[in-house]
């Protein structure tokens, strides 16, 4: 337990933010994938290329997280790690907004149709399964916004390797 507490105490704010961004990106990606694969209105609406951005944003944050645990004497190595970490975090944040905007773009017409059609058409389209799909999409938007904001804030925090 003490070791765990020590370990936690040695981590920087930046590390925790990176971790938070990573977890949120993972959750957001899961919701996005689920929304495009689970039965419902938006099944099959995830373009393959955008999934790649989503996966990469998670991977980049994972790598950035791993890098926070590297603390060596060699200043050149640390400089490279610091710069790489910066780049990874910037790119991850941008990838996340790319996915988020595409997510919104591909759902917008469907959501309009489900929620804003006249009452008769709504009976046809706003079925329980389609509504569940719609609410999942909206939840996904919100999670992506939070994930992106956390990732963006994280960029403003400098890389601090784990204390020795």
């Amino acid at each position: 337990m003490n070791k765990v507490l020590d370990f936690l105490k040695k981590q920087s704010v930046s590390t925790y933010l990176t971790l938070a961004a990573f977890i949120l990106a993972l959750v957001a990606m899961s919701v996005y994938c689920a929304n495009g694969n689970v039965e419902g209105y938006f099944k099959g609406t995830n373009p393959g290329g955008i999934i790649t951005f989503s996966v990469f944003s998670v991977i980049l944050l994972a790598i950035a997280l791993v890098l926070t645990q590297v603390n060596v004497e060699n200043k050149t190595v640390m400089l490279v790690i610091r710069v790489c970490s910066d780049i990874l975090k910037v790119v991850a944040a941008v990838f996340m907004i790319v996915v988020m905007m595409n997510f919104i773009q591909t759902r917008l017409n469907g959501l309009s149709y489900i929620f804003f059609s006249n009452d008769s058409v709504k009976q046809e389209v706003a079925t329980p399964i389609n509504l569940a799909s719609a609410y999942t999409a909206i939840a996904g938007f919100i999670i992506y916004v939070i994930a992106w904001l956390v990732a963006l804030v994280n960029v403003y925090f400098s890389f601090r390797p784990v204390k020795k």
């Binding site: 910037v90 941008v94 905007m101 919104i104 773009q105 963006l152 960029v155």
Partner: peptide, 25 residues
């Protein structure tokens, strides 16, 4: 200043995406 400009880079790059995809929509 480094964290500030790093953050601004990410922020402005995000705004590029927001504005371009937003414009498309």
């Amino acid at each position: 200043l480094i964290p500030l400009f790093r953050g601004l880079t990410a922020t402005m790059a995000s705004v590029i995406v927001l504005s371009s995809v937003g414009y498309t929509i």
